[in-house]
Design a protein around this nucleic acid. Structure first.
Lengths: 192, 192
DNA sequence: CGTATTTCTTAACTTAGGTGAACGAGCCAT
DNA sequence: ATGGCTCGTTCACCTAAGTTAAGAAATACG
């Protein structure tokens, strides 16, 4: 499991043995069952996640309805807003599959960052990249219609459409489950 | 002008005189006229911006139509996607007001980061915060309808509605200018 | 197993955004 | 001034998403 993490990091920086040895004993790996809720609305937390295998999602409950806004799968990281802002969480985080992830907290990160500046550099680069990508995704969402958004998703993350329940996909696309059904039927019709 | 920048930085870390002296001679301040295009589609660039005064916007041209996706005003920073990914830009950046900003490039940042690790730490923290905030904004966009999005904007960034042309606001809200007009009329009607 | 629950789909109807066009207001340039 | 632009608004019509409801399919669980 460690190897998956180190392989990921090695795409950005080469860790020395000393650095690896500092990370190894931290006991950050956790295996969680499908359905487990990692973070609840209103809760304060300083835990960040990195998915090694499986899938987690963020969702809100608005007027009693679940609104899924994001999925994080293999090699994707989530520092919930509440961790960064030190305020109670506005959303839930839960596992939609049996999932293996790393869990780190702010103190651990501060310690590692203090000891190994290159690690902080890695984190800076990663968050800059994620921010730029998030903005592009947001732009794409704004500039396209639900049907185009679905077709886009089909291209970019075909796995999601397989592994995620339709009603969660729907709110991820900014529409209702019924509309997603209809939209898919419409697309099939066009093809024929 | 420097003071505005240092004031901003001082919210996060306290700069030593040495650090200030390293930044001061960099000639990063630039004054640009309304309408100036800072970055064009297809262009490669390694310049990042920080707005001290004024307003810049990012927009795409899709099927000959401008789609405005973001505004950056006082104390907001933009590292265009192309700078981070080293690929040609997908969007334009232009000034919608006479604007004063800092312009930095990747090399300068690398140099400063190398000399002053605390500066890199600042950048890490800033981008983590911006990322978390961007995700919340995206979530809000997904989970609300155009009318709610407009009302939200009215609350959170009332200045934008004053200083930005309606048709740019419209695409920022993910709708057409005509729909924004209609929507505003509808809201006024409800109030009465 | 079989029952209960959740999930997905379909349909009819309502509502709101997209489209195309027209008009007036303000702005710029000649 | 005046003609040309862009910009914002309004209208009528079209299209697609929201809503409500019902039933089928898949899943979970005792």
């Amino acid at each position: 499991m460690q190897d998956v993490l180190f392989d990921f990091i090695s795409k950005y920086i080469t860790l020395t043995e000393e650095e690896k040895n500092a990370i190894a004993p931290l006991d950050i790996f956790r295996s969680v069952k499908k359905g487990t809720i990692l973070l609840e609305e209103g809760q304060k937390s300083n835990e960040s996640y990195f998915v090694l295998q499986g899938c987690i999602r963020t969702y809100y409950i608005i007027d009693g309805e679940e609104k899924t806004t994001a999925f994080y799968t293999e090699m994707e990281a989530l520092s919930p807003h509440c961790v960064v802002s030190k305020t109670p969480s506005q959303y839930y985080v839960s596992c939609i599959e049996d999932t293996i992830l790393t869990v780190s907290n702010t103190d651990m990160e501060a310690e590692i960052n203090g000891k190994f500046p290159r690690f902080e550099s890695l984190c800076r680069i990663l968050s800059e990249q994620l921010l730029a990508k998030e903005r592009i995704d947001f732009d794409e969402f704004k500039t396209s219609l639900p049907e185009q958004r679905y077709l886009n998703l089909l291209q970019k993350r075909p796995d999601l459409i397989q592994r995620v329940p339709q009603h969660q996909l729907a709110s991820y696309l900014g529409i209702k489950p019924q509309s997603l059904s209809r939209l898919r039927a419409r697309i099939l019709e066009k093809k024929s």
